[in-house]
């Protein structure tokens, strides 16, 4: 599961390269109306390319979380469409939702950790739930914990961790399927500035390895400091789409350099 064979890596690169020719995610006049005449999104059109790092910012109720939930099939469009790799997410059948979500990592704001399980057990539990064998779990969990720099707290319970460490565990859990897409809803909402920055650094590192990262946040200080593409939402509409101000080597660039760099550029397609 972890270290890909050269053949698998080639396939992965090919996927990345093919994805760069067309947008990875497309919001086409996406509308969401919640019951009670509450508007979630009011005609959002947006394109996101593979390997991008995008912040959705705005006030509470502006539609930031809805943007992410449309991709994870937690919310449905009431008008327009949302395409993920060319496929309309709303048209995915209920039985295929699980498969869709295995192609993405979802990081919730409240961490959603199991308090009676240790750090490694929290990650292992999620792996077991999606059908990984015990052997795979034993091999993969230490690697994932190492990846998010929480391996040293593997035997701690969640209540023994700081907020930042708990968020790292939540991110580790989101990485179990080696997803090419990471959705983080207010990942720093419960954290102090120092821990918030650490989490953002971690997300940036994942993005550098090829993962497309979408973050809903209202922490403007962090957003500006990161210098990534920032989409501002207001009352369900995009009012501003500011491109990245700090350029980093993303997956697309890395992939074009071939395998000599030895960089993992992401996992399976969704």
């Amino acid at each position: 599961m972890s270290a890909k064979s050269p053949k698998a890596r080639k396939v992965s690169y090919r996927r990345v390269n093919s994805a760069t020719t067309s947008p990875y995610i497309v919001y086409k006049d996406a509308r969401v109306d919640y019951p009670g005449h509450v508007t979630g999104l009011n005609g959002v059109s947006l394109e996101i390319r593979k390997g991008e790092f995008v912040f959705f910012v705005g006030r509470t109720g502006a539609g930031k979380s809805t943007m992410l939930k449309l991709l994870s099939h937690e919310t449905m469009t009431t008008g327009g469409s949302v395409l993920l790799q060319g496929r309309d997410v709303a048209r995915i059948r209920p039985g295929e939702v699980a498969h869709l979500r295995r192609g993405m990592g979802i990081v919730p704001q409240d961490f959603a950790l199991l308090p009676r399980k240790k750090v490694w057990e929290n990650v292992a539990y999620a792996m077991r739930a999606v059908g990984h064998t015990r052997r795979e779990v034993r091999k993969r969990v230490p690697e994932i914990l190492e990846q998010v720099s929480i391996a040293h707290r593997a035997d701690a319970f969640p209540n023994e961790l700081s907020g930042g460490e708990q968020q790292r565990v939540a991110i580790a859990r989101a990485l179990i399927n080696n997803p090419p897409l990471l959705l983080a809803d207010e990942p720093t909402g419960n954290l102090d500035p120092q821990h918030s920055w650490e989490i953002m650094e971690l997300l940036k590192a994942l993005n550098l390895k090829g993962t497309t990262v979408l973050v809903a946040s209202h922490d403007m200080l962090i957003v500006h400091r990161m210098g990534k593409r920032t989409v501002t939402l207001e009352r369900g509409k995009v009012t501003e789409d500011e491109p990245a101000t700090i350029l980093t080597w993303g997956s697309n660039e890395l992939s074009s350099l071939g395998t000599d760099l030895g960089v993992e550029t992401g996992g399976q397609d969704v």
Binding site: A98, L114, A126, A129, V130, G131, R173, A174
Partner: peptide, 16 residues
């Protein structure tokens, strides 16, 4: 509900 939510987040099947 936390376990169920985790399973939903990581893409566990409805059967699981």
């Amino acid at each position: 509900r936390t376990e169920i939510r985790i399973m939903q987040l990581v893409g566990a099947s409805r059967l699981t």
